[in-house]
Design a protein around this nucleic acid. Structure first.
Lengths: 344, 344
DNA sequence: TTTTAGCACTCCGTTATGGCGAGTGCTAAT
DNA sequence: ATTAGCACTCGCCATAACGGAGTGCTAAAA
């Protein structure tokens, strides 16, 4: 049995309706909402076929049908329609981008908030992965005996800092010259190769502090790879709007899952190969997200892939709108990041 | 009518019981849980008195009594008992402090997580207020034509960065020397007085770039005052555990409230005068927190007040435990921050 | 005078019940 | 191949009935 045109139309109508209503849709209501001119009985027959094929399911006998994950998959693969951001959506975005544009990370945070407000789902944004960045500056600032703050700056305009131990006999002047030496030597090195580069040709001026420099650079490379807290999460509470999560039990489970930021990070990181990804329900690896769908897009800086952002919502999410919003935000984001790093 | 010893004992028993059970407590159940040897009838009479005095309330006739905000106030003012952290609590804290100690802010983030795990309430931590800090370093790193990243470092080992516009004809060398001049001139200035100091005695080398320097320093002072996102929030989902928030409606309201970080920041900032504060139910100014209580404590660096952290829970929270936990964490935090900035 | 046993009463929360409505599958007619 | 008609299924909801926990009051006991 194949999916002919009529079956597709009916399937689509069921999905559209279910996305709106969240309750099983029946043969009658479908005929009204979409303008399908077959009789309820015909539609019922087709729906029975669709159920046999695994696209629809019945919560219990004598209830309407709900779409299966397989149906959503078909829907997103074949039935999406392009659309630009609506004026209202664009207005919300602009409001968030008007303020606090003093760095990439703050732009990304605003993006997360805007996304959740626009879609009413949960937004996640991965902070930039510095692995592909190039070192622009390293500064060691003495704080107290044996302690200093190391700050690195990359070509993408991102800074990371960490308090580090230094040899007790190290003077501020020595720290300063060390900063300059490393900056010079590793200027424009990828963050992942900083220590390699420097270690291969350790100069005389570094030799006496070899161990320290080694430890320092390891630290620097570490901090380039983002760890915990490198995901911005916004609007998790939105999920409570939806009947799926009206049960406090389920809501708690969801909130617990998204509070595990490292898991979210791994998920987003994984999605960073692809310009867009849509992961539906059970396709998710994470246990707590198996009743959710995740849609992601990548953002770039200077045409280099930099990170991923996305939307988490119930499986019954408005895929069409979400995809279009992500696309629109992706473009806006590219422009903002561009203007942040290039002359206006 | 005065509160004699017996009334106090009964009031306390009611509060203790209610904190545990979350349901109105009656004269009978109270006698069992506490070992009060008066008969239920006597206890009933006393409870009626306590109600007349405003310490207890009845949800409806023929139900048990629940404590009023006034009762909690009395409780926290007169009935708390000191206790150190339990072994288990200390173990959790240690677990969080073992990892990620590369800066004050990451310690504070871990603190928030630990607090919410230990107490099962919602934890908030205000990121350090740099107003009282002193400048240790300012670095301008060129990024592209007309763009640079400014990084400041304070004596407390905190860095803040922002992408800024620079005059197009400014060379990297000029930026570097500008960085050095400002750092030198303003070394150890309070962050709030940096621009005053520099502007009062603008040197010849800065004169030609006067406008730019002025704008830059304003920016720096701004970023010293924390803005949005300067509150770390952890465990908001914990509130869903409690019957008070079993209603999805209420839970949503709460989550919406705590997602407004600027409001939280203002609240914590206000509490920073006092070593400890306890704000009960309707004493809260924020509308969304009027069914909650907030307990805060301050943290210090080098004996200087630096910020505030605290716990938000239902009005029916275990004040005794929360206060003791905050006190214990305060001590641990002081030690960690100390070790971060002083030689070991 | 204070405390306590006894009792009638109140009211919430839970469970049982029955009707309603939306939907289905099947059959027979178109 | 499509559709009208029909009997049937089940979840949902409002109502009623019930049991339990707790109260206030009164009168007896300490």
């Amino acid at each position: 049995m194949e999916l002919d045109e009529r079956k597709l139309q009916i399937l689509r109508a069921v999905i559209d309706e279910y996305i709106l209503s969240a309750s099983p849709v029946g043969s009658k209501s479908i005929r009204q909402s979409a303008e399908l001119n077959w009789s309820p009985a015909t539609i019922r027959n087709e729906m029975a076929d669709l159920e046999a094929l695994g696209y629809l399911a019945q919560p219990h006998t004598s209830a309407g049908r709900i779409p299966s994950d397989k149906a959503y998959r078909l829907y997103v693969d074949r039935m999406l329609e392009r659309a630009a951001l609506s004026e209202q959506e664009q207005a919300i975005l602009n409001r968030y981008y008007e303020t606090r544009i003093d760095g990439i990370e703050s732009v990304l945070r605003s993006t997360a908030q805007a996304l959740s407000e626009i879609t009413h789902y949960t937004a996640v944004v991965m902070m930039p992965d510095l692995a592909a960045n190039r070192l622009r500056h390293l500064q060691l600032v003495p704080l107290a005996e044996g302690k200093a703050l190391s700050v690195i700056v990359t070509d993408a305009g991102v800074a990371r800092d960490a308090i580090i131990d230094i040899p007790k006999d190290m003077t501020p002047d020595e720290l300063e010259s060390l900063s300059r030496t490393i900056t010079q030597r590793c200027y424009n090195c990828r963050m992942t190769t900083v220590s390699d580069r420097l270690m291969r040709e350790v100069g005389a001026e570094l030799q006496s502090r070899g161990d320290f420099v080694k430890a320092l650079l390891t630290r620097v490379e570490q901090s380039a790879q983002s760890g915990t807290n490198m995901v911005e999460l916004s609007g998790a509470r939105n999920m409570l709007r939806y009947p799926e999560y009206n049960d406090v039990e389920k809501a708690t489970t969801f909130l617990a899952t998204v509070e595990q930021r490292d898991e979210l990070y791994r998920m987003l990181k994984k999605a960073s190969d692809m310009e867009f990804t849509i992961t539906i329900g059970s396709e998710n690896e994470q246990r707590g997200l198996q009743d959710c769908s995740v849609v992601t897009a990548t953002y770039r800086v200077n045409d280099m892939p930099f990170g991923t952002f996305g939307i988490i919502g119930p499986t019954r999410m408005d895929y069409n709108r979400v995809v279009n919003v992500l696309q629109g935000v992706q473009q806006n984001l590219a422009a903002i990041l561009q203007s942040l790093l290039k002359e206006d």
